[in-house]
Amino acid sequence: MLVAIISIYILLVSLQMWLLFGTINKALDKEHLDFSTYSAIASVIIFLCTVFFLRYVPDIPTGQNKKQEDENDHAY
């Protein structure tokens, strides 16, 4: 399940990178301001989605699943 969530996150960030790349290529001047505006709105929406989905990702405390190996852990 977590792998699916991480994949969705990476997909969303890739989409944002694609939008930013398009904005840089198309709208470095005053022309095509409409394109860059819609791209900015989409990018912010994606960011808000990623922030919202954070609550569905469980926080596994550090080393919790490593307890059985702690006995032999001599690496400091």
Binding site: V13, Q16, T23, I24, F47
Partner: peptide
């Protein structure tokens, strides 16, 4: 990843704002 996403969103907003 979320922090990186926020940075990208900020850059995407900054470009049209700067151009405007």
């Amino acid at each position: 990843i979320t922090f990186f996403s926020g940075t990208l969103a900020l850059a995407n907003v900054a470009i049209p704002a700067f151009n405007f």
